[in-house]
């Protein structure tokens, strides 16, 4: 999943034999330098393919004396899978990374014979694809920023009132913002029904968005990406009988990769 100047990739931990759970600690994400590869499908092929790419990436590094770029790795995955066109590895890989030179997020997915699906937003794979598509399509938005700051300390309360009007008119369509703001409004004890707020703070709202650009730098983009991808994965696997048992989440930023382990439902 792509965020603002960052990407994330996550997997569940279940290994199953049809309905029988064999292991509850089977990560499906593999790190090669600053490129990450997710593999779903037949477990033997997951192991084989992950080792194959470890070997290929290491060879690349020895020959080229530099790390492999995500887009280069994607083409390597594609051609390697297509080599087995008529006896494929039963895997559906996902690649995520940041372009080393431009810092631009890169993600893509593949079918089992190497057809690349480049995406600007998110890639899903595995037994819970439908659920993941539903979650990602409704939670994801471009350049996600976290807006869990307490606005009451920053801005006059009428802003929320004004935002609600915009929301009702359909002029504001920012799920995370809206739900956060709605939540604040619903839980606050301030009285927003006073109509005089409306004109007073109409200007305040515009100022807020004018000032928002520099505010964005202070906001936690990777944190919101983490929350979004985690919620998308956890809720999707909870509706799939063949996935679950906790999750691994990797957040890739320009200078660091953060790995988090999520507990999730254990059933």
């Amino acid at each position: 999943m792509v965020g603002k100047d960052c990407v994330a990739i996550a997997c569940d931990l279940r290994l199953g034999l049809q309905a029988l759970t064999v292991s509850n600690n089977f990560p499906k994400i593999f790190q090669y330098g600053d490129v990450l590869l997710g593999l779903t499908g037949l477990a033997t092929d997951v192991a084989t393919v992950s080792d194959l790419f470890r070997y290929k990436v290491n060879m690349y590094r020895l020959r080229e004396e530099r790390n492999i770029a995500p887009s280069t790795f994607a083409n390597l995955v594609s051609s390697s899978l297509y080599e087995r066109r008529f006896g494929p590895y039963f895997v559906s890989p996902v690649v995520a990374g940041l372009d080393q030179k431009t810092g631009k997020p890169f993600i893509c997915g593949f079918d089992s014979i190497g057809c690349i699906d480049f995406a600007k937003d998110f890639i899903v794979s595995g037994t819970a694809t439908e659920q993941l598509f539903g979650m990602c399509e409704s939670l994801w938005e471009p350049d996600m920023v976290r807006l869990d700051l307490d606005f009451r300390t920053l801005f006059p309360p009428g802003i929320f009132f004004y935002m609600m009007i915009l929301l009702k008119n359909g002029q504001l369509n920012h799920d995370v913002e809206c739900s956060t703001i709605m939540h604040i409004i619903c839980t606050s004890d301030l009285n927003f029904t006073n109509a005089s707020y409306q004109s007073t703070f109409a200007t305040g709202f515009d100022e807020f968005f004018a000032n928002n650009l520099n505010l964005l730098d202070d906001l936690q983009c990777p944190e919101d990406l983490f929350e979004t991808i985690s919620q998308a994965l956890l809720n999707a696997v909870d509706r799939d009988a063949l996935s679950g048992w906790g999750a691994h989440v990797y957040i890739i930023e320009k200078d660091k990769v953060t790995k988090r382990l999520l507990k999730g439902r254990q059933d």
Partner: peptide
Amino acid sequence: SLIMPFLDN
């Protein structure tokens, strides 16, 4: 199957 997990959440 696309909508239900979103509703759970």
